[in-house]
Computed example of a mutant assay.
Amino acid sequence: MDVLLTPRLRLRWFRPEDAEFILGLINEPAWIAGIRDSGVRDLDAARAWAQSRLIAPYWQVGHGFWLVERRADAEPLGLCGIFKRDSLPLPDLGYGLTTRHAGQGYAREAARACLVYARRVLGRDELLAITSPTNGPSMALLEDLGFVREGERVGDDGPTVDWRWRADPARPQDDTALATDWVRRFWACQGPDAEGVRALAALPALCTAEAELQGLDGTMLSVRGWVEVGGLVPGSWVGEEPAVTLASDGNEAEVTWGPWRHRLVRDGERRWRLSHLSSRS
């Protein structure tokens, strides 16, 4: 599934058939020295690593590391994306390109697009990043992207530099404004962007794992089922103003917009997520 396009690049979900490229990428000396040695040495191990590390998070959290390929010839260049680590409180931006494709601005182009995606699609105004203190090119890129160095510590893979990016300006933080922002982002994912890409890949990030969404025929679907049938393209009602009703405890909200009723709940970060979508009729 395509995630986003830039003038030169396509970022898409990794697939099992990308295992040979992954095996080569994560065994390059520059990758091992600057990122980590994953201990993956054959195709079967690469397939298993890709499934658990790359593919599974797409459905679990709605984002992750995506394959970066050149649009002109579909040449795979590396990976870039927004990854949620158990060891960090927020998702972080990560990237890594093959040595032969370094130095051509691909990492910068992909990373900048990921920051726009994080804000516009995922509703993230803040991301983290981690680097090795010896990875000068990566640290220079983070500074160019607007990340601020926060300190150095000893992490799971040795000495680690922590970085943080904050969007400017940040979106309003009152509950009604955030619920309105959520519903607009949800339906924006259903329609094509300027490049013709529909951001359906992000829906697991906007919904609870158990969310139910009503299709046009009245059938209730899981998030995965909704994505797999192609979602729904919004109508002219997107020009109207959503109506938000907050629960007294502030942990639930109902948003009506056009023909749809959205039930939202708070997640562990107190961000809104969809638990139920149904027709108002």
Rank of each mutant, 00 (worst) to 15 (best):
D18A: 07
D18S: 05
D18F: 00
A19P: 03
A19D: 04
A19W: 04
E20N: 04
E20F: 01
F21S: 03
F21T: 02
F21K: 09
I22R: 01
I22F: 06
L23G: 05
L23Q: 13
L23E: 10
L23R: 14
G24S: 11
G24T: 00
G24D: 05
G24C: 06
L25G: 07
L25F: 01
L25C: 10
I26H: 06
I26M: 09
I26P: 02
N27D: 09
N27Y: 10
N27H: 08
N27E: 12
N27I: 02
E28V: 04
E28G: 11
E28Q: 15
P29E: 14
P29N: 05
P29F: 14
A30H: 13
A30R: 10
A30I: 15
A30Q: 11
W31I: 09
W31N: 02
W31S: 08
W31H: 08
I32G: 03
A33M: 06
A33C: 11
A33D: 10
A33S: 13
A33P: 02
G34S: 15
G34D: 14
I35C: 05
I35M: 08
D37S: 12
D37A: 12
D37V: 04
D37W: 13
D37Y: 13
S38A: 15
G39H: 10
V40F: 08
V40D: 10
R41Y: 04
R41F: 09
D42A: 05
D42E: 15
D42T: 07
L43I: 09
L43F: 06
L43C: 13
L43M: 12
L43Q: 13
D44W: 00
D44T: 04
D44F: 00
D44E: 14
D44M: 04
D44L: 08
D44V: 06
A45M: 09
A45I: 04
A45R: 13
A45Y: 01
A45L: 01
A46K: 06
A46M: 04
A46Q: 11
R47I: 05
R47H: 05
R47A: 07
A48E: 11
A48P: 06
A48V: 02
A48T: 10
A48R: 08
W49S: 12
W49E: 12
W49H: 15
W49A: 15
W49Q: 10
W49G: 09
W49D: 09
A50Q: 01
A50C: 10
